Simulated assay, not measured.
Amino acid sequence: MAMQERIRKNATGAILFDAAVSSQVDDDWFEPETWRVLGALRRQTGGRGGVAIIDTPAGECVLRHYRRGGMVARLMGDHYLWKGAERTRCFAEFRLLGAIAAMGLPGPQAVACRYRRLGLFYTADLITRRIAHAQTLAELLAAGQLDGEMAELVGALVARFHRAGIWHADLNAHNVLVTSEQLYLIDFDRGRRRAPAEGWQQANLQRLRRSLVKLGAAAQGEAAFEEALWKPLLYRYERTLRA
């Protein structure tokens, strides 16, 4: 189903939503407490600046509040410099997810997003449909379930996005979801479309590699990791990229 983009403006900001999914979206949708009162808050992590699983009229969704990471988080927290609605983090990710869906790539389905103006700054939220019965690649690794076959599937997944010119700003094992049917990439904050080029594609792959090693994929040694996981991943990546 094609996205039907609509914008609803108010005194403090605006909501961008897909009318094909739901036209009922209002400010209350972006407040975890709303869903708690309704008995529809299934899970929440990280407090107000985190992620909530909510049971909405559009189905089970993920509500994510944008928050800075790293050193700048101490100063800015969840505030971003206002440069216009079209340059907000939430509008950019919402529209990128729409493009990903239109290309038939496996990513989260965008439902709605919101920004709220705070003088020279803004805060933002995003709602996507939850991918059911999924585990992260990091969870599979921790459970000892990441093998060469799964590594190949991950390589194919990344190659499909790279071939379409989709750059993921934080490609790591936590942002790869695995279900019994297929794999997905999630969290496209700061992601964008780029002309396919080996430079950024290889840098993206190396970011994923560092994530896997950091999470213990090379616990038996670099050589074992290369043979058992990384070479299968690259083999399938290269074949899919050039298919």
Score class of each variant (00 low, 15 high):
114 R>N: 10
12 T>R: 08
190 R>N: 11
11 A>K: 07
12 T>C: 03
8 R>G: 07
141 L>P: 01
196 P>W: 10
20 A>N: 14
32 P>R: 00
130 R>F: 06
175 N>I: 05
168 H>A: 08
112 A>C: 11
147 D>V: 02
226 E>Q: 14
74 R>P: 03
91 F>K: 03
216 G>D: 14
10 N>Q: 11
208 L>D: 08
46 G>Y: 07
171 L>I: 07
32 P>F: 04
123 T>M: 05
111 V>E: 13
119 G>P: 04
45 T>G: 05
28 D>T: 08
243 A>L: 13
68 R>T: 10
104 G>D: 15
145 Q>L: 10
31 E>T: 09
56 T>K: 00
89 R>F: 03
210 R>C: 07
8 R>S: 13
9 K>V: 13
91 F>P: 00
140 L>K: 04
86 E>R: 10
209 R>P: 01
66 Y>P: 01
60 E>C: 09
56 T>M: 00
195 A>R: 06
208 L>N: 02
94 F>A: 14
6 R>D: 15
13 G>N: 09
44 Q>L: 13
63 L>M: 09
81 L>Y: 06
196 P>E: 15
82 W>Y: 12
34 T>K: 01
203 A>P: 00
19 A>K: 03
225 F>N: 08
43 R>V: 11
162 H>N: 07
205 L>F: 04
152 E>T: 00
117 R>Q: 14
26 D>R: 03
